[in-house]
């Protein structure tokens, strides 16, 4: 019961002003995650051919790249789905090697995939607490503590300003935007260190996209580190602090959002602009 989501309350110390200048600060602050020379092949296909990437704590880092650039593979390496062939992942300065998604989850890394991973026929509160259920009693007589989970689910959602009127309703009754927000809220709640989002607004309408972007902004205010995969340049410029561009399995460039433009990012993705991060 101690691992309840109290962490998002007292984190207002990371004021937006501090994160605005976070780009320059991140050079000083030691990175949460540091990836160097990451390589991964599937048979003859070299998906990753030496990726370098740093995630500054409390920042939103965008991961850009064309289809097949290696974004998904990188995420899967970082979440323990695929072990890397070569290169290293450092987490808070310590080298880690993930053998399964459980290993990554233990370090507080949570991922919101495009499929969201919600169980439609379970109520919202049960989805939020899936595999993190609160129980009372002991031994084989552990019983779900429904009351606490329902009450705290409302708290989790209202703290992030997610508009879900009734946490007892099943996810099936939720709109696409609500589902996305529930999935992100769940990841942010259990992702104590890093939340990875794979194109969170790809399937959403304008208003729902805005709601999700606001949610990402609130996560940043709460000092949650976010890795955001997105194809939407305008969105990246709106919500991210830093962007990494992957091209053909390599890091092509790293850009601070305040010092770049959408055109430059698109150029880096397509190769029209030469990358500079990798020889």
């Amino acid at each position: 019961m101690t691992d309840t989501p109290a962490r998002m309350t007292g984190t207002s110390s990371a004021a937006p002003a501090a994160t605005q200048s976070g780009a320059s600060a991140s050079q000083v602050v030691s990175p949460l995650v540091e990836i160097t020379g990451l390589r991964k092949s599937f048979g003859a296909v070299q998906a990753l051919q030496g990726v370098d990437l740093k995630l500054a704590p409390g920042e939103v880092t965008a991961l850009l790249g064309d289809n097949g650039a290696g974004k998904s593979t990188l995420v899967r390496c970082l979440t323990g789905v695929h072990p890397q062939d070569a290169g290293e992942i450092r987490f808070r300065g310590e080298q880690v090697r993930f053998h399964s998604p459980d290993d990554a989850r233990q370090l507080g890394i949570e991922t919101v995939y495009q499929t969201l991973g919600l169980i439609e026929d379970l109520p919202v509160w049960q989805n939020l607490y899936l595999n993190h259920e609160l129980t009372s009693g002991f031994g084989p007589f552990r019983v779900l503590d429904k009351k606490s989970m329902i009450a705290q689910s409302s708290d989790i959602l209202s703290r992030l300003d997610v508009n879900v009127p009734n946490v007892r309703a099943t996810v099936r009754r939720m709109s696409g935007g609500q589902r996305q927000c529930i999935a992100i809220a769940r990841a942010a709640n259990w992702g104590r260190t890093l939340v990875i989002m794979d194109e969170p607004t790809a399937a959403l309408g304008v208003r729902e996209t805005a709601a999700v972007e606001e949610l990402i902004a609130r996560l940043r205010e709460a000092s949650v580190t976010v890795l955001l995969i997105s194809h939407d340049m305008a969105q990246v410029l709106r919500v991210a602090d830093t962007a990494y561009v992957l091209r053909r399995g390599q890091t092509a460039a790293r850009r601070t959002i305040s010092a770049t433009t959408g055109d430059e990012l698109v150029g880096l993705i397509t190769g029209a602009v030469q990358g500079d991060a990798h020889a």
């Binding site: 459980d102 499929t115 991973g117 169980i119 026929d121 379970l122 899936l130 019983v143 779900l144």
Partner: peptide
């Protein structure tokens, strides 16, 4: 009333999602 029950319902409801959260 139990975690196992939640996992039974989750596994049947969406096996990929259940696997995804570590069930």
């Amino acid at each position: 009333r139990t975690r196992t029950g939640t996992y039974l319902l989750s596994t049947g409801g969406n096996i990929e999602a259940a696997r995804g959260v570590g069930i």
